[in-house]
Computed example of a mutant assay.
Amino acid sequence: MQTRIDRQQAQSDLRRTLMLDAARSVFERLGIDGASIREIAKEAGYTAGAIYSYFENKEAIYGALLAECLERLNGVVASAGDERAGPAEVLEAKASAWFGAFSTNPRDLDLGFYLMQGMRPRGLGTELNQRLNDRLHDALRPCETALRAMGLNAEDALRENTALFAHGMGLLLLQHTGRIRMFGQDATLLFDAYVIGLVERLQRSPA
C-alpha cells in the first residue's frame, strides 16, 4: 500500500514540476500579464482543469516558481564557505555565493526581480509577497551577520549589506543585458573587487 501511495505522490510531484517548467517558459515568452492558465496548460500538455487542481491562478504558479528559486538560492548560500572561518572570509564566501547563483542562473534573476516582459509583483498577496521577501533576506542575512562580527552595529551592518546587494544587482543587470560589454569589464571581477574593498575598509576602521 505504501509503495502505491509513494508512486502516486511521485507522479503528482512530476506533474507539478512539468507544469512549473511550462509556466516558466510561458512567463519568459509572454510575461505574467500576457500569460494565461490555458497557455500554460497547452505548453505543459495538460488541460486547464488539471492546472487548476494544483494552482488557483497564474499568480500562484509564479509564487511557486519564485519560492523554488529562493530555496535554491538559500541552499547555495548555506553551503558556501566555512562557518568556522573569520568573519571577513565568511562575508566574501557568502556574498560570492548569492552573486554567483544569480550570475550562473539568469532565469532566476529574471524571476526574482520581475524582469520577464515587464512583469510586476502584483497578485501575489501580501502574505505570500512578505514570505518570499523574507526568504530572499534569509539568503542575504549571513553577510549581515558577518558584518556584525566585523564590528558593525545592527544599523550599519544593514546599510552595508543593502549597499552590497544593490551593487551586486546592478552588476548582474549589466551582465544580463550585455551592457557590461560596452565598458569592457567583467561583472564577477568587479563584484569581487567591491567585496575586497569593503573588507579592507572595515578592517582599517577603528573598532
Results as ranks from 00 to 15, higher is better:
I180R: 01
H167E: 09
H167W: 10
M169Q: 13
H167I: 09
F191K: 04
R179W: 10
R181G: 15
A163W: 13
L190H: 07
G168W: 00
R181M: 10
L174G: 05
R179F: 10
A187K: 07
G184I: 00
D186L: 04
T188L: 11
M182S: 13
L173W: 13
T177R: 03
A163D: 12
H167R: 14
A166E: 12
A163F: 15
D186T: 04
A163E: 14
G170L: 07
Q175P: 00
H176F: 07
D186V: 04
T177Y: 00
L172S: 04
H176T: 02
I180W: 04
F183G: 10
M169C: 06
L171H: 01
N161G: 11
Q175L: 07
R179K: 12
L172F: 03
A187R: 01
H176P: 00
N161M: 09
N161Y: 01
H176S: 03
L190S: 11
F191S: 00
F183L: 14
T162V: 07
F191R: 07
G178E: 01
L171T: 02
M169A: 11
R181E: 14
M169S: 03
F165W: 12
A187H: 05
F183N: 06
R179Y: 10
L164P: 02
R179N: 08
L173Q: 09
L190G: 03
G168Q: 05
M169V: 08
F191A: 05
L171F: 03
I180H: 07
F183Q: 09
F183P: 00
F165E: 11
R181L: 14
D186F: 06
A187W: 05
L173R: 12
T188S: 15
G178C: 02
R179V: 04
M169G: 05
A166D: 12
I180K: 04
G184D: 01
Q185F: 10
I180G: 08
T188Y: 08
A187P: 02
T162W: 10
L190C: 08
A163L: 15
G170C: 05
F191G: 02
I180A: 04
Q185D: 09
G178R: 04
Q185P: 00
G170T: 09
A166R: 11
D192Y: 05
L173C: 06
F183E: 06
A187I: 00
L164S: 07
G168E: 06
L189N: 10
L190T: 04
G168L: 00
L174C: 09
F165N: 13
H176R: 15
T177D: 04
